[in-house]
């Protein structure tokens, strides 16, 4: 048996740090994980920064600057497997709201000297720049799913992460459907499972932290949202949060935005 432990690197791009902190949030498992794999590069947790290549790179955050677009290519070249963690790395994150606007106007809104700020017009998912081996969803990611992904790549198997909807988790948890019973707008039918249907458990509608599920029918859900009294601009906004740039949510928000324009 080989004595060498696989090496892990954790990278940050534009993000809130919440997903990489989920690894440090594995309070019961952290020391065991560090026994099984060598945490070789994780600057947020350690000042020891080992040189690559790395067996597994976990990438948090989206690509928003020319420098970061170059940096992710170097990381890909030095990584055997590359897994994105969270909505920023997988879909562009909340900062991808710039993709629907004029980023120069954004810069002028926040900074006195916009000419000192180097930024791209769009916030891109990692997969728009380099091949990605697995994308872990969530804003933030789920701790158990993160451990499953690390375990799977260490043992060379595919991660077992369900592709179904929040609705399925909600039913299994035995929650009352907030949309049917209370008329509360809910993105559960089109949203990827993973959180454990937290929001319906708190008597609120799902707001889409995990992005679209596999083969979602967003137009059908939007019709229901309208039926519940949501205005078109509200429907635009409900799809435009942390996964605004994922295909289904982007198309659905743009479709309603066009309709709003036609109504004048």
């Amino acid at each position: 048996m080989s004595a060498r432990r696989p090496t892990l690197a954790v990278w940050k791009f534009a993000s809130c740090d919440g997903c990489q902190l989920t690894l440090l949030g594995c309070e019961d498992e952290l020391l065991a994980v560090a026994d099984a794999i060598q945490i070789a590069y994780f600057p947020e947790a350690s000042s020891a920064m080992a040189e690559g290549p790395w067996d597994l790179s976990l990438v948090e955050g989206s690509i928003t600057t020319p420098h970061d677009a170059e940096r992710i290519r170097e990381i890909r070249r030095a990584s055997r497997h590359l897994v994105t963690i969270g909505a920023c790395a997988t879909a562009g994150g909340i900062q991808a709201l710039r993709n629907f606007a004029d980023v120069e106007a954004f810069t002028r809104q926040v900074y006195a000297r916009p000419d000192w700020i180097k930024t791209l017009a769009t916030s891109d998912p990692i997969a728009a720049h380099v091949p990605v081996d697995f994308e872990l969803r969530g804003c933030p990611i789920d701790k158990a799913q993160l451990l499953e992904v690390i375990n799977a790549f260490v043992y060379g198997r595919r991660p077992q992460v369900p592709q179904s909807s929040v609705c399925e988790e909600c039913k299994r948890a035995g929650h009352v459907c907030v949309m049917v019973a209370h008329g509360t707008p809910c993105l559960g039918p089109v949203t990827h499972a993973g959180c454990g249907a937290l929001c319906p458990g708190c008597h609120r509608g799902c707001y889409g932290c995990f992005g679209p599920k596999e083969t979602p029918n967003a137009p059908a859900l939007s019709a229901w949202l309208e039926h519940l009294g949501m205005k078109r601009e509200e429907i635009v906004r409900v799809y435009r949060t942390f996964n605004a740039n994922s295909d289904t949510f982007r198309e659905e928000s743009l479709r309603h935005e066009r309709d709003t324009d036609h109504q004048g």
């Binding site: 534009a14 970061d68 909340i94 900062q95 709201l97 606007a101 926040v110 900074y111």
Partner: peptide, 11 residues
């Protein structure tokens, strides 16, 4: 740290 423009897209 790359800017994320929260104050702009809250508008």
């Amino acid at each position: 740290e790359p800017p994320r423009f929260f104050e702009a897209f809250l508008l």
